[in-house]
Design a protein around this nucleic acid. Structure first.
Lengths: 205, 205, 205, 205
DNA sequence: GATGAATGAGCGTTCATTCAT
DNA sequence: GATGAATGAACGCTCATTCAT
């Protein structure tokens, strides 16, 4: 019994190590420009071993993307839920999202670079998962904003559109921060995002 | 003389036809999953002929992306410049951008899917061009908003960040419209974008 | 009648012009690294026109080689025949051969570089022609030497082997002259070739 | 340790096998008329495997030529050095050279056919190596002959030219033997070469 | 179990030749 | 006749995956 557990633990550790190194390599060069041999070499395993952990190159890639994104959404929601009031939650949402991107610059670049397309089964279902997760996340933000409307803090605009807007305002800062080599910390944009999202750009209402 | 002109016209028509068909094929399957033979067959030319118009697969791809994007930015700016006052210009900006996306759904999907990455010279310089064009466009919007600030219509927020925010609010709607199969017209979101951009989501200031 | 003659004369002039330019291009880059388009462009004719003068690329190449080599052998024999006595004839043979090589350095390099092989019909028959011409030439020298034996000037060694030896002694100098960038005139070797061929290297007999 | 040695030995055996079969195929058809698939099939390996042993088609070709030629020069020099006196050494030189050609008819034919040209890096450096090795060999013969001059056996002709002459006299016989399908053994020419090289063709001095 | 050499389908690209104009 | 755009077979090479050791 104990033996089995150790085996399982070891298996998971190796799997995680491979994913970690694969992320680095993929993030640097993109899916199509990386060979399985490279990942094997980077992670210190043999080519053959990789195929014991993952069904193939695509599966390794989609798993890596998928698990990392799960982590991102989880982190953001956890931080958001931990805040007390609506404004605090929105602030936490912006902050946690920004921080994840700052910590995972290379990974996130994969989404600017693109490198997702493909026709194969695995890639198609990855894309669908990405879309589903995206809408789940928008829905999470939506509920937050609905609460704000109910509490009389926010205007009664379509919640889904508001949520989408907030998400993409965060994305806007992130993208620019990733595109321009050296700039101030991404987190410094939090105030602006919060301000423009809440009050808009017009001078007098 | 006339002969030469007709030759040139024909050349350009064939070139355009290839680009048009290549756009369709690339949009469906992404750069790496399309073969030159497929594009040749789809556009009704032989493999060899493609190489008279374009230096290779990458050149065909980057040319297609580049020219189409040039067109998009040009259309948006033309429509924007044609409007009279600031609010009208912002409205026109949103409208023209939305309309281009509605008319070029498949092409725009390439950017959601990503499929830009690659390490080669051509691809690297395409990416740089995309980034440059993006910032040029943000700058165009920036100037528009600066004018609004000067005229006392808009708050004196950092113009670049405001421009980026507006651009990504438009992008937010577009993305969702492309992700969800059948939905109301993208243009119908114009009112919301304008509203949230100008006034924000907060109930009382 | 006269019209026809002019046509024919023009045809031959164009054909010669193509061969002349083709020689230059082939000599510089070798058969496989030259395209038909290059030859067309170099000779000032269209691709299609080339196919009116020659059946194809191989035919153009083999014709060029063949005719040039015919010329070489003809020149050498003419000069040789013009000399009076045996020793003079051998001297003339060496001289004319050396001079042809000096005048046609690039062409002759084709034979050092190789660039003859191929499996196709045309190439095979070219090779056979080269071999036949080579033996015909050796035979010419042979007759010269037989005469020398009959006249009591030369030892009664196997005439074919003697002829071959003489030919390759000339070739030896030529080769080195072509391999080493800048050297004294090839013709300056005539004395040495004659000396070693006639007297050998041994000090006392 | 032992394991590693066996691996290395196997690797070298496979590499040698590929070179051997490649030599046959190239010798028959020339560089440009052989496909990588053909060599793979002839040597009993897959296309991909060839690329584990050699960087590409050119590398395979140049390696084959280079190693074989190294072997030839080594054999000739070894045999020559083993002989006692000058005349014996010259005889051994002729003999060893002839024997190598008799044993490696197909390989040597590559040099008659030519098939060395090409513009690429690898081919250019092969050519330079061939030339360098040629002159190194001539130099080896030169030293031999210089010794003969010093010992009073040979006339004080320019040693380099004498060496070149001897080399090409051997080459003359070899070439004819290769060109004419069936003939007496090449080695039977040794006597003639020695005779003409030492004494020349003139009857009375 | 672990390995990495072996496999070969599939790719982008070239260029001799043809033939509509 | 003269042209050169169009053709597509054929090539060298890569690399995800397998499987004998």
């Amino acid at each position: 019994m104990e033996r089995l557990e150790r085996k399982e633990r070891e298996f998971n550790m190796r799997r995680a190590e491979i994913l970690k190194q694969a992320e680095k390599v993929f993030a640097t060069k993109g899916f199509h420009n990386v060979t399985v041999a490279e990942i094997a070499s980077a992670s210190g395993f043999s080519i053959g071993s990789l195929y014991q952990f993952f069904e193939g190159k695509e599966n390794l890639y989609t798993t890596m993307i998928s698990e990392k994104l799960d982590l991102m959404y989880a982190e953001i929601r956890k931080a958001t839920n931990a805040a007390k009031d609506i404004t605090g939650k929105i602030e936490a949402l912006i902050d946690a999202h920004s921080q994840f991107i700052e910590k995972n610059k290379d990974f996130c670049r994969l989404f600017i670079k693109g490198e997702n397309a493909a026709l194969s089964e695995a890639m198609t279902s990855l894309r669908q998962k990405l879309i589903d997760d995206y809408f789940k996340h928008i829905n999470f933000i939506e509920n937050l904003l609905k609460d704000g409307i109910k509490k009389g803090l926010l205007r009664a605009l379509p919640p889904h559109d508001m949520a989408s807007a907030l998400f993409h305002l965060i994305r806007a800062s992130s993208m620019e921060w990733m595109l321009v080599p050296a700039k101030e910390s991404l987190s410094s944009k939090k105030g602006f995002i919060l301000d423009i999202f809440l009050k808009g750009v017009k001078k007098y209402d």
